[in-house]
Design a protein around this nucleic acid. Sequence first.
DNA 1: ACAGTATTTATCCAACAGGTTAATTTCTCC
DNA 2: GGAGAAATTAACCTGTTGGATAAATACTGT
Lengths: 237, 237
Amino acid sequence: MAKATAKRTLKWQRDPEGMRLRILEAAKQEFSAHGLAGARVDRIAAKAGANKRMLYYHVGNKDELYLAVLEGAYDKIRSEERGLDLEHLDPPEAIRRLIEFTWNYFLRNPEFLSLLQTENLARAKHLKRSTKVKSMHSPFVEMIRAVVRRGVESGDFQVAVDPVQLYISIAALSFFYLSNSATLGVIFGRDLLDQKAKDERLAHMVGLVLAALTGQSVALFETTKAPKSRAAVAQTV
Amino acid sequence: MAKATAKRTLKWQRDPEGMRLRILEAAKQEFSAHGLAGARVDRIAAKAGANKRMLYYHVGNKDELYLAVLEGAYDKIRSEERGLDLEHLDPPEAIRRLIEFTWNYFLRNPEFLSLLQTENLARAKHLKRSTKVKSMHSPFVEMIRAVVRRGVESGDFQVAVDPVQLYISIAALSFFYLSNSATLGVIFGRDLLDQKAKDERLAHMVGLVLAALTGQSVALFETTKAPKSRAAVAQTV
DNA sequence: ACAGTATTTATCCAACAGGTTAATTTCTCC
DNA sequence: GGAGAAATTAACCTGTTGGATAAATACTGT
């Protein structure tokens, strides 16, 4: 059976690159599900379909493994961020796109949220050691700076906001809602993650930020019926 | 030595209430510093100046200990929230006060942020079991509802926002900035927690939310020189 | 003063978890 | 076709950790 040239009873195959990827993927799942201290090296190995020894052979000890996962996560979001060009849009539309992208990225990558939470609980101990991540600047700050400038010049925006503050605020509105949806859900006694709730949240965030910038209340600020809900939240990249 | 009536060589004293409090305080520190899985029962005992057996005697096992800490944290913030009466203030001022309170509470109680993060990483597993917390509704939602209604009626606010969304947004703006200050600090290469940065952040948040509600850009929205910085962030409760 | 109970101390332990050592198998190049 | 290196497996080892057991000490009411 199997391929013609293959020897019959192969106990295992060599696949260093594939193995490394499977390890990192399994580690990402494990660390985001259980945090740093809660993660189990044995479970990562099992999930990767590998022997525990492989983790140390291909990546390193638990801490190095965790840092590698974290770096990978930052790498991924930065790479997607670069694909979002806001230059051609008029300023309010650009801000909307930015908010939608952030929201959808967090929705599509919940592990990213968990990893950031975990790293912040560790006071960024690992990130500080990472030379890689430090050099991976988010393009968003400069994008926002340019958009705000254009908006002020065109008269669309009434004030010049500090782009870093705005960046943090936009991230905050999505991040907190999603990362804390579990406790908030219990407190409010309702599911913050069903489609209706998510549509309303996105509308609220866009409305809040645009109203602040333009001075005119966006229709979406109030809870709308959100027609074509699916399309509205479609991936923006 | 010691009190007159006290027998001389007392090996230890009884103090069940005090012991329980010390245990919970030590546990709060430990859990907020290391998360659930990272917390060490032995360290909690040591910090409480107690024997490890005492934890199980007075509170329960690690999970029960953690839940007790969490419930205490919610109890504390809810109690402070109730002390904040916004009825007498005109609507924009009430919103400002709300934001300042939230910001300052988080600043004064960093363990609360950590505990929430930890609990959310656990998907609110413990909170769901807690009957106590579920009945501790935050008065803020109703406060906000009333303020928004008054603001719309008086013409101060241009739109009626969903109070739950606004509550979450206000919490988000402070929470994310503080809970993620470690990673954000590394990314931006600057300290987000020095006094100047904190003043600017508070001004930004107030400006953003009030501009959105009133349609008029608040002076503070831009980065101001923030005169009397200390007073501006004084405790609001 | 003393009996009974509440509180605290002093040890112990079995399971676990991260990491290591050593043997085994596959691949590559000549 | 086989020698040497790369990749993988299997077994093991040691410190830690949550939790339990048992003994000792302080307090309370009578």
